[in-house]
Each structure stands twice: as C-alpha cells, then as structure tokens.
Design a binder for these strands. Structure first.
Length: 571
RNA sequence: GCGUUCAUGGUGUAGGGGUUAGCACAAGAGGUUUCCAACCUCUUAGCCCGGGUUCAAAUCCCGGUGAGCGCACCA
C-alpha cells in the first residue's frame, strides 16, 4: 500500500512541476499520449543527447534521420504489415474482443497463419466466449496496430503508415552508409525519434504509449568475421535470466565475459552491446541493482532472430522492458532486397588469397540462337547461363524458366572451360539491433532518482538526477531580491548559459530555503547564492544538492570548473 | 475491448438537490528577513465533457472522455 502511494505522489509531482503531464488535457486528454513540460522536455533532450554521444564515441557509428511517414511497401517487407495484422473477433453476446487465432489455437497447429474466413469457420464450430460462455462471434477482422495514412490526395494517394520503429530508416540508408564507411564492415547507424503504435489499451502511465520516443542502433557486421570484443576488463556482476527452455534456465549472476564464455549469450557482438547498454543506463542514473537482462525463449523470439535479450528495469511498475537487443541476422536486408529488387544491400568480403575458379559453361552462339528462337532467345540464353550441371552430350532438352523446354544442338553453343581469379564475394551483412524506449528509461530515471526524505520533521523530496540529466545544471539565487543582488545573479546566469552545454536559471521569489527545496525537487544539482559578500568581492556560495554542503568560491573559478566538469572538486 | 473503482483551483483533499463550494500546500504582488519549505497583508485559481430528471444539478440517472485495478492484448 505504501508503495502505491509513492507512485501517486511521484506522478503528482511530475504533473505539478511540469515534467510529464497528460496530453490535450483541456480537451479531456487522450489515452496513451503524454506531454513533456518545460522541465521534462529538457530532461528528455539531455538524456537523448547523452545516448547519441554514447554511441557516436565509438567512431564507427553515425547518426541519421529519416521520415516517420513510411510507404506501405517498406513495412510489408519488414513484416510489420503482416505481424501487426492480428485477427480480432468480438463476442456478440458480451462484446469482449479477443485475438481470433488464440481462441482457435487448440484446433489448428498454426492458427496465426490462417486466413480470416478459415478462422471464422473454426470459430463457428462452437468456441465459447471466455467471458460469458456464449458462442456467437463477429467476423474476424485484422486489427492493425499501425496508424495508417495516405501520401497524396484522393484516389491517387499511396497507403502509408506512421513508423512503428525507426529501424527501417537505417535499412533504407544501408547503401549510403556502406559508401560512407568506404565499404568496410563493421559499422552502425543510430536514429532517435518518434514511433507510433495504436495500442488497444495503453496503461501504466508513460510505460505504454501510442506515440513514443525511440532510440535505435543498427550495427552491421560480417557474420564470418565478427568484430573482436574484449570483455575481460569488465568487473561488474550482472543479473541474467537466460532462455527458460535452454540449459541455463533460472536467474544467474555473473560478468559479461563469463556469460559469453559460458555460451549463455550466444553472440560476441550481442554480449558487447549488453555491456554498452549497461554503461549507458548506469551513466544516466539507473540503479544498477534494478537492471537485469532477460533472454527471450526460443519460442518467443521473432522467427529471424537468433539471440534476443530484453534489458529490464525494475521500478514502481515492476520489471519493465526498456531496451531490446536482438541479433536480427540478415533478415531485414535480405527481405528488402527481395521486395524492392535493389542490388546494393550487400557487402564485399575480400578473400585472404584470390581463389582460382574454373567454370564449365555452354556459351550461346548468338548468330544461331537469335534467329532460331527469336522472341524466346533471351530466355534461352538466361537458361543456359543458369545451368548448374552441363549435359554430357548434345543435343539436349533445355528447361526454360516458364516451364517450356527447347532443344539445344551443338551449332547453338560452344562448350568452354573458363578460369577466373575470384578475389572475394558479396554477402548480406548481419545486423545487431539495440532498441531503446526513451520514455520508459526516463520514467525509471525519475523513479530511481525520486527520494522522499524528512528534513526537520517535514516531508522533503529530492530528485537525485545524474550529472547532465537535470533540466538545468545550476540555479542562481540572489539572497535578497534587492540591493544589486538580482542584477549580479542575472549576470552570472547568462555567463553560465554562454558556456557550451551548461544551463542555468535564476530564481528570486520567496525565501532562500524554499528556493533550495524547489531546485532539489526537480533535481538541479548546483545552487549559487549571491549575498552581500558577492557584491564586494565577486565570490558566491555554491551548494551541492546531494548533501546540501556549501562552499564559497569565485564566480570565475566556478565558470571554469563548470565548463571543465570539475565542480565536484571544490568540495 | 470487457468488468470494476474513481473524476472538485497547479497539487492533495472536504462537502454535497437550493452553499458567497471550505481547507492545506503551491503560485503572483508587497513587506520583513545576513543561507535551507519562517512570518504578515493582499491576490489569482476549481466542481471532466454531453444529455436527461427537476422549479432548481457540482450533487441523482444515462452516455462519453480520462485515470487506477482485474481479465484480454502488448513488433
């Protein structure tokens, strides 16, 4: 009970202080849509920027930005149009809605692959409603969880969807990325932005949203030469929940390196991203004790993925999936290559030594093949090139791709043995994808930073946000709102704001204690107070949020240290 | 989507068929104050939306919307 109250108080504080609020509130609100207020938007931007910096620092990762409106064909190839098209049916008696394939799954081994009319047939065989035991169902209809729209006006418009993930943008840009990186793997691309899913019932505050902030990385590797990773120096012990169907079922604690060596994490690059995800979460203030990595069961994994991990964070809503790290293998690029007919979705693998390949082929004699087959000549040439085994003797029957066959005699072809030096081969890169739910991470950052304390008998709350995550770094407080103190405070505020990436604001209303409390509640780590001494010698007191310690220093030194990130050393 | 509980200033709440709708905190203006939600004066600000019943609805009824919980759903 006490825990639920904390959730209520935290939510109330987030609304009151302009961090996270219901969207469109004056019109009654819309479920699943939220606003970040003035404080929350700054926190979100800074956390997102930290995420971008975290990955860009690797050197082989770049940022891209692509549209949120996505043509249907892209999402057909990615599988989203199919996968998001679950068939739903409603009970005619009580109106309850269900996944139709779930209702009939005991009647068919692959219920989710059935067409709507087949499902209707099975439903009519007397399936009872789990809610009211009636047995009358509406026709099964696809319930698409994507927001659809039209590109262009009226009937000439193309069907499109608001993207359900940002990942497809990285796949669309694969050819440009491959050129950018001078045709060398591995490399990666990141993108942050909005994603959209028309959830049936959004719940749990900002955990399940209909429009949400995503941050995704696609890291392309050569599956035969995965990048070297060194986890030997990592000492942290993490909580793992391996595949419940595998040999390591149950919760275990070990290091990243051991998990890879033991084969629990099946791919070295995946292990490396688990570790780097951990680094990011801890850097932005997630409590390490509240992080665990859960491996998908083989049955739960998308069909193409070979190793999937959720990074779950524990908070007021229990364990929540906040990051998904998946080895998507070559699935996406191959699928886009097949659907789009594009050629550039591969990478070149140079052999260590050029290989000599000897090829036996029947080279067509155009002067005979052309006049003989006329319109079919092209198909005949193609069929000859495609022969994997050459006939022992001529003439022979050649099968064309459309099923017909033609007779090829010795005047039409020449048997040749060709040798070529092959220095490498084309292949489809594999991709490892860490996908972050920014809103969920922000929720847990706030949750873990929110501390209810007592101060001289009164309730007092802190938001112990990590350095660089708070909406501003520093609040400047004139001790009194007169005698030149506000003017000096204003000068100091703008001096700090002219530093790169440092933010300050001034607060001169009400008592000094109240202003400290206001700053503590939204997590501002530093407070500079301008008093009478400041007016004489340019020194101010600087107060540290986390222990309310205060030291006196000169404004110039504080500015220098703020730019260098060494404020802590003053204490 | 179904069931259920709920909806009063920015936040938390009291009340409730006819009230100037109360309180606390927060916020704004002024005063006071030599550093941790002090004090004094004044001020701003509210019954979720729509329909019904009634002489009269913020209050009762119905519907919607939103929130919490349970079921279902959750690439």
């Amino acid at each position: 009970m006490a825990e639920e109250r904390r959730l209520d108080r935290l939510s109330a504080m987030l609304r009151r202080r302009g961090i996270v609020l219901p969207a469109f509130d004056i019109y009654g609100g819309v479920s699943g849509l939220i606003d970040y207020g003035p404080v929350g938007a700054a926190i979100r931007r800074r956390l997102t920027q930290k995420w971008i910096d975290h990955w860009l620092s690797h050197g082989d990762i770049v940022e891209i930005d692509s549209p949120t409106i996505t043509p249907e064909a892209v999402l057909v190839a990615s599988g989203h149009v199919g996968e998001f098209n679950d068939l739903m049916t409603e009970c005619r008696a009580c109106g309850s809605a269900f996944r139709a394939d779930h209702l009939v799954e005991h009647l068919h081994p692959n219920a989710d692959s059935l067409a709507a009319d087949a499902v209707d047939g099975l439903l009519a065989s007397g399936i009872e409603c789990p809610s009211c035991s009636d047995a009358a169902w509406t026709a099964a209809q696809p319930m698409n969880l994507m927001f659809s729209t039209q590109i262009g006006a009226m009937s000439s418009g193309r069907t499109a969807f608001m993207r359900p993930e940002t990942a497809q943008g990285m796949f669309m840009l694969y050819p440009a990325l491959y050129r950018h990186f001078r045709q060398k793997l591995p490399f990666g691309a990141i993108q942050t932005g909005k994603g959209y899913r028309n959830e049936i019932s959004p719940r749990q505050g900002m955990i399940r949203l209909r429009e949400f902030n995503m941050a995704e990385l696609e890291y392309f590797i050569d599956p035969e030469n995965p990048p070297h990773v060194d986890l030997a120096r990592r000492t942290e012990i993490i909580t793992l929940v391996p595949d419940p169907d595998g040999p390591y079922a149950g919760e275990t604690r070990m290091g990243f390196g051991s998990a890879l060596d033991a084969g629990i994490v099946r791919h070295s690059t995946v292990a490396w991203f688990l570790a780097r995800t951990w680094d990011f979460l801890v850097e932005v203030g997630i409590d390490p004790a509240q992080i665990r990595f859960r491996q998908h069961a083989s049955t739960e994994m998308a069909h193409y993925a070979s190793d999937c991990w959720d990074c779950e964070i524990h908070g007021e809503h229990g364990w929540i999936e906040c990051v998904g790290i998946a080895n998507r293998t070559c699935h996406d690029l191959e699928s886009h290559e097949a659907h789009s007919k594009a050629k550039g979705l591969r990478a070149w693998r140079q052999f260590a030594e050029p290989r000599t390949q000897t090829v036996e082929r029947l080279a067509p004699n155009g002067a005979v093949v052309g006049p003989t087959f006329r319109a079919d000549a092209g198909a005949v040439v193609a069929a000859l090139e495609a022969l994997s085994e050459l006939p022992d003797e001529l003439p022979f029957e050649l099968q064309l791709s459309d099923g017909r066959s033609v007779t090829i005699d010795s005047s039409m072809v020449e048997r040749r043995t060709e040798t070529a030096n092959v220095s490498g081969e084309w292949f489809t890169p594999h991709v490892i994808e860490p996908a972050f739910g920014i809103d969920r991470i922000i929720w847990h950052v706030l949750d873990h930073a929110y501390e209810e304390a007592q101060k001289e008998g009164e309730d007092y709350t802190f938001l112990r946000l990590a350095e660089g995550i708070s909406s501003v770094d520093c609040v400047v407080l004139p001790l009194f709102d007169k005698e030149g103190m506000p003017e000096l405070a204003r000068e100091i505020t703008s001096a700090i704001n002219s530093l790169p990436r440092a933010r300050a604001e001034m607060d001169s209303s009400k008592s000094i204690g109240r202003r400290y409390a206001r700053a503590d509640e939204i997590g501002i780590p530093w407070a500079l107070t301008v008093d009478h001494t400041s007016l004489k010698d340019g020194s101010v007191t600087i107060r540290r949020r986390d222990d309310q310690m205060q030291v006196r220093s000169f404004v110039d030194e504080i500015l220098e240290r703020m730019a260098a990130g060494t404020i802590q050393e003053l204490f």
